[in-house]
């Protein structure tokens, strides 16, 4: 065994603008890495899991990107925003409850006080909690690179477990956004853990529902992880729901359909396939019901 060598960088930059950050990345040409709170990256670096880099480019001090804002259509979260800030934000509590819930279960306060939602997304774990929450809300992300700035759907950024289409040596995930839940809409997140071993969810599920006055579901999004290499949008189950009544029978059916379309796996020391299936069966209906309650609450 090698003694965990303390992989060190030489320079730690805290640029104040995106242009400056990109310029540093360009200069290092792959030998510098973007870092947010560092709660994934630096822990892994200390364990010797990453190739050493010459510089770290900390994007949490960029002006204008350390705040949550809203425009006409969206709530916008800068890449410097920590989970703690998201959890406390009144707008997100009201119009994006499942994101608040999913960021709220991450780590403990020390991790939430520095870890960012952008880092959670860029880390691209199959069940990153904040990511599952944002995916259910229909989130989008903004990526800045030498080629310019563009928005893309969140789900288009996932490449594989821990792999992202965002090049973390050259590109910056600058902002994240979602359309706030309106009247008749509700969202919810839940995850199942075990008290032993790694702090990774056995299953993490997020939902967003829209129902009309006749209790018919007019829009539905269901996100789940880990059910494969990347965070999963359960489209077949969503289709089952849309157009149907918001009843528990429908939700149970949606869970079955979700299960029919994914291959859950047994993972060592985490959970058996059967257990995961059982949790989806139990909790998907539970949180769909919760989202309905919230939709109704918001409507009334």
């Amino acid at each position: 065994m090698t003694t965990a060598s303390t992989n060190r960088w030489e320079h730690y930059y805290t640029p104040a603008t995106v242009a400056e950050a990109l310029e540093i990345l360009r200069r290092y040409d792959g030998r510098a890495r973007v870092v947010g709170g560092g709660t994934d990256l630096l822990v892994e670096t200390r364990r010797g899991l990453h190739r050493p880099v010459e510089a770290m480019v900390d994007v949490t001090h960029i002006e204008g990107l350390d705040v949550i804002t809203s425009d006409e259509d969206n709530i916008v979260i800068g890449c410097g925003v920590t989970h703690s800030r998201i959890v406390r934000d009144a707008r997100i509590l009201k119009y994006g409850m499942c994101l608040s819930e999913s960021c709220g279960v991450i780590g403990g306060p020390q991790v939430r006080n520095v870890g960012t939602l952008a880092g959670n997304v860029a880390h691209a774990l199959p069940a990153g909690d904040g990511t599952i929450g944002l995916l259910a809300l229909g989130g989008e992300i903004e990526v800045a690179s030498d080629d310019g700035i563009r928005w893309m759907p969140l789900q288009d950024s996932f490449k594989g477990p821990g792999k992202s289409f965002i090049d973390r040596y050259r590109q910056i995930l600058t902002r994240l956004r979602f359309r706030p839940t309106a009247a008749g809409e509700g969202s919810a997140h839940h995850r199942v853990m075990r008290p032993q071993g790694l702090c990774l969810p056995i299953i993490s599920v997020g939902v967003r529902l829209q129902i009309d006055d006749a209790n018919t579901i007019t829009d539905a999004r269901i996100s789940m992880g880990p059910v494969g290499p990347v965070p999963y949008l359960a489209e077949p189950a969503m289709e089952v729901l849309v157009g149907g009544p918001a009843t528990n029978e429908q939700f149970v059916r949606a869970a079955e359909v979700a299960l029919e379309n994914v291959e859950l796996r047994t993972s060592k020391y985490r959970a058996s396939r059967e257990y995961r299936e059982q949790m989806v069966r139990t909790y998907l209906p539970v949180i769909l019901n919760r989202a309905v309650e919230r939709a109704n609450g918001a409507a009334s």
């Binding site: 730690y12 560092g38 020390q110 991790v111 520095v114």
Partner: peptide
């Protein structure tokens, strides 16, 4: 040194952080 135990907690601008994985230059 892996952000697990919390005994290295200090306050940065009033919030608790694990100082073992907090780059000193981030606290500039």
């Amino acid at each position: 040194n892996e952000a697990e135990c919390g005994i290295c907690t200090v306050l940065v601008d009033g919030t608790p952080v694990s100082s073992c994985v907090y780059p000193a230059f981030k606290a500039r």
